[in-house]
Design a protein around this nucleic acid. Sequence first.
RNA 1: GGUCCCUUCGUCUAUCGGUUAGGACACAUGGUUUUCAUCCAUGAAAGAGGGGUUCGAUUCCCCUAGGGACCGCCA
Length: 465
Amino acid sequence: MKKVATRFAPSPTGPLHIGGVRTALFNWLYSKNKNGSFYLRIEDTDKERSKDEYKNQIINSLKWIGVENDGDEYIQSKKIDDHINIANELLKNGHAYKCYCSSEEIEEQKKRAKQKKIPYIYDRKWRDKSESEAPKDLKPTIRFKSKIEGTTILKDLVQGDVEIENNTIEDFIILRNDGTPTYNLSASVDDHQMNITHIIRGDDHKINTFKQMQIYLAMKWELPSFAHIPLIHTTEGKKLSKRDKASTLNDYSKIGIMPEALRNYLLRLGWSYKDKEIFTIDESIKYFNLEGIGKSPSKLDMSRILSMNEHYIKNMSENELYIQFESYCDKYKNKIPNEKSDKIKKSLNFLKNKAKTLEDIYNNSTYIIEDVVSFNNDDLKLIDDNAKKIISEFSSNIDKLDKFERYELEPILENLIKSNNTNFKGVGQPLRIILTGSKFGPGIYDIIISLGKEEVKKRLSAKIT
RNA sequence: GGUCCCUUCGUCUAUCGGUUAGGACACAUGGUUUUCAUCCAUGAAAGAGGGGUUCGAUUCCCCUAGGGACCGCCA
């Protein structure tokens, strides 16, 4: 048995979106499940559109979600000479030929086909023409001599047998008239040279697979296995593209989605293992298989991502959560001041109960992070004279406390409720507003204790007068 | 238009011929609760339609309908 090798081969012509991330994840999981290797190949042969910026974004995205490639990134543009050599070999073997059609001529044919509403396919004009008829002033493209007779069956590991008439595959270009290789050639040569055994990619590549299979056959190379996974659709039911909002990983991380949550979500999007929903990395490696991949495209569901994130927030250790929260604030909000980090750490146990995202934690903890409380007028109106009296009583009552724990605070509040002939809200709400500037937030005891006696006194006295 | 793929609750899915069609998210209701939440309980919610095959079809086959992908000297 050959050692399993998979690859993810994006082109750095745009930011990697969540669909690509899932494809990478599936390839990575499959190879790890089989104790094999996973490679990252940057397909940067389109010099016009490829950008280093995108290459880095791709590498960072995969790193962020925990998909790690074996070995260095494979840079396709460095292998162009190999691709050209194979094209020449194909030419020599009679599996390819020179086509002297100008691009204008081809465009014209396509236009006409469209007008007549018939499918365009290159008419194989130069397939059997002799070289002597070639125009002198035109550089030819090299086309692959595709099969015309019969059918080809692709034994797809996800979709089953897919049969296609060979004559629907045109004589595709493998070398442009400037001598550079095109995608189908480069990809086949690279996959072969990298000893890729399983090609797992989006459904949108299926036609390419039939073309690439023919190159393999012509070169007498051993065919890899193919698995075409259904695409991820937007809520509108269309193929997800780079232009869609909320499509890159950064769109998610900036609102406080954590990598393990998104990884788990993506794993379960289009793949399942019985009724299991939550998978650690190790579990996903252990259980991942191609049989569990569904055949129909699936839609992105934000509320599901959120609830997955919520699950991870509540179930990860507070230490780990703090590390993620800290770097989240650092990157997208304000850096947590050193002197506040202990308070935040201690408060995580109640902060996390109200949070679906790291951003929620941030919003609920600003009263700790920021020293000056800001108020809005509507809330301030609730602080009437009666409320001020209660607050002032509370303030003097806590002076004698030395532990400043819940069991000490509870009786004080209860007494205030009784002596002022009110309910919990009558005491709790004004306190909350003055302490945090908001009617909403963590439990009142949590707020008081997390702030500490000194800070509570300070904030109360600033507002009573 | 041609080729290919898909079709179970709103969404992600389980079921590999016999189930009261299960779970999760979302939703609704009730309970716990100092706000908002959490948590707990309960509920509503699905096999696109039509033909076969079979003792029996969500499951196998065919047709129809609907949806999607591809149709570059991009990758």
